[in-house]
């Protein structure tokens, strides 16, 4: 799993480059565990290149959210395709995460 990271005024923007499924979600977890261990306060995940997130992926994002909440960090998601958004909605996770439509909105809302 390839993830591109950039820092925009203290906000860590992580762009996922492929689907998050049972094979790739352990990598995603390890990647974000490093960020949450460093107590990154603001993380924004870009789903632009993601077609599909399976339940292991959803669970991984819930865990990242849980870890960040322990130190008061903020996690936001953006650029979810309708299909991926639907997957979040079925499991009622759209109520847990802050999901932004565009990068500008997401960055300014932190």
């Amino acid at each position: 799993m390839q993830i591109c990271m950039e820092d925009k005024d203290g906000i860590v923007v992580c762009r996922l480059r492929s689907d998050v499924d049972i094979n790739s979600s352990p990598d995603v977890r390890n990647y974000f565990e490093r960020l949450t261990r460093d107590k990154k306060e603001k993380i924004l995940i870009d789903f632009k290149d993601v077609d599909y997130v399976d339940s292991s992926g959803l669970a991984t994002f819930v865990e990242i959210f849980k870890n960040m909440r322990t130190y008061g960090g903020k996690l936001k998601l953006m650029n979810l395709s309708n299909k991926v958004r639907g997957l979040f909605e079925i499991t009622k996770l759209d109520k847990l995460f802050e999901i932004a439509a565009q990068e500008a909105d997401a960055l300014s809302s932190f």
């Binding site: 049972i22 979600s25 352990p26 977890r29 292991s56 669970a59 865990e63 499991t91």
Partner: peptide, 23 residues
């Protein structure tokens, strides 16, 4: 099946189980 076939962490598996049981 998750414990047997995947490399997922226990914490992630627990969250998945809660999600599946909620469904």
């Amino acid at each position: 099946p998750l414990r047997e076939h995947t490399k997922l962490e226990k914490s992630v598996i627990n969250i998945m189980v809660t999600m599946k049981l909620e469904l």
